[in-house]
Each structure stands twice: as structure tokens, then as C-alpha cells.
């Protein structure tokens, strides 16, 4: 399991209901079921991953964040998780709204476009930055809605979401030391992880 998935798992109270959007090979929901007795379910866009997950006995449906969240009833989960995918969905704002309609908490991680390397590369080369995190050229990237940590916080503020926890994490998924200052995290954090709730 990736280190940031461990950080996500730690945010989740045992015995709760969890929906993992983009559950991949099902590692997180399997972990949550086995070690935290959660009723954990997944949605995954890649049919191969779905088949592998279901063949492991995990409850996963084929679907995606943009089109399938609307069918879930209000408050049917305690946590709705979206890992490293927010920047790739068609309507990130709507996806966040759906997540907090379906769940009490939304746990969201995304790559931080405000990282210093991105800023420097764009400034000095005048080309779209290419780093370990952002490694596909502009014409092939699935990341159609990149944002920085401060951009994300501004949206949370605008839409009235409360930030219960946040942390910057590095590409390996380990927690980065920037936990006091949003500005420093926005400069040095490669990824960001948030736990949001409804209301300010």
C-alpha cells in the first residue's frame, strides 16, 4: 500500500462506511475492511482493475467520478475518498459537492501545481513543466484541472467546506514537514491531502 494510502486510512474511524472513488486495484478498501472493519466499497473506471477487485471479493462497481456519484443517496457514507484524481475529472467542483452530499467527510488528495519546481521550470524554460509528478506532455495529460493547495483552499472557502485536517505529502506518499504554513506547503508539498466536512 502506498504511504499516502496509509495516511488516508489513519483519517478513517474504524467500523464506518467508506466509498473510494477510483479504487484502482482495491488496496485501500481491502485494507479498510480487513484492518478497520469498515464497510468499504469502490468505484473504478478501468474495467481490468474492476474485474481484479471483484475477483478478490471486493465490492467495486465500474463507473467514474463525473457520471456515477449522482446515483448515491444523501449521507449514505461516512467517508468518500478521491485519491490523486481531482485534477483529472471533468467537473472537480461538482465532484466535491457530490462527495460531501454522499458522505459526512470527503478525503481528497491531489498533486500540487504550486510546487517550487513547477514554478521555476515554467519561469525559466517558458515551457509546460515536466517533473516526476507532472510527467505527461500538455497534449496527452489526463490532468485537465490542475490546482495549487491555495487554489483548493479558496474553493473550499467559496463553497463552504470545513477543512478538518490537511497535510502536504511527497511523491512517495510520506508526510512532508510543512504542517504549519499553507504557503510553505504550497511551495514545497508535491501532493496535498485534505479531510473536508460540511459547514465552515
Amino acid at each position: 500500500m502506498r504511504l499516502d494510502q496509509r495516511l488516508i486510512a489513519k483519517m478513517i474511524t474504524p467500523g464506518t462506511r467508506v466509498l473510494d472513488i477510483g479504487s484502482g486495484d482495491g488496496t485501500l478498501i481491502d485494507h479498510l475492511f480487513r484492518t478497520r472493519e469498515c464497510d468499504a466499497r469502490g468505484i473504478e473506471i478501468d474495467m481490468g482493475e474492476v474485474t481484479r477487485s471483484v475477483a478478490h471479493g471486493l465490492p467495486v462497481v465500474h463507473g467514474d467520478a463525473d457520471h456515477d456519484l449522482a446515483h448515491y443517496p444523501d449521507n449514505s457514507f461516512d467517508y468518500v475518498v478521491l485519491q490523486r484524481t481531482l485534477q483529472a475529472v471533468e467537473r472537480p467542483r461538482e465532484v466535491l459537492r457530490q462527495m460531501l452530499r454522499i458522505g459526512r467527510y470527503a478525503i481528497v488528495s491531489f498533486p500540487n501545481f504550486g510546487h517550487w519546481e513547477m514554478r521555476l521550470k515554467l519561469l525559466f524554460s517558458g515551457r509546460m513543466p515536466n517533473t516526476a509528478v507532472w510527467h505527461t506532455p500538455w497534449y496527452a495529460t489526463p490532468n485537465i484541472h490542475p490546482c495549487t493547495i491555495r487554489d483548493f483552499l479558496a474553493l473550499c472557502d467559496e463553497d463552504g467546506y470545513r477543512v478538518h485536517e490537511w497535510m502536504a505529502i511527497d511523491e512517495e506518499g510520506d508526510r512532508a514537514p510543512w504542517r504549519r504554513s499553507i504557503r510553505l506547503a504550497n511551495l514545497f508539498g508535491e501532493q496535498a491531502l485534505f479531510r473536508l466536512g460540511k459547514g465552515r
Partner: peptide, 18 residues
């Protein structure tokens, strides 16, 4: 079927076999 079960908050898996 899957969307109906989802609306009913059922525990559902869904696979389309190639």
C-alpha cells in the same frame, strides 16, 4: 440495475466482461 441498487444504497459490484 446497478444505478437502481446504488440509489437504494445496496452493496453492489459491477463487472462488464470483455
Amino acid at each position: 440495475i446497478v444505478r437502481a441498487l446504488t440509489r437504494a444504497a445496496a452493496n453492489v459490484s459491477f463487472v462488464e466482461i470483455e
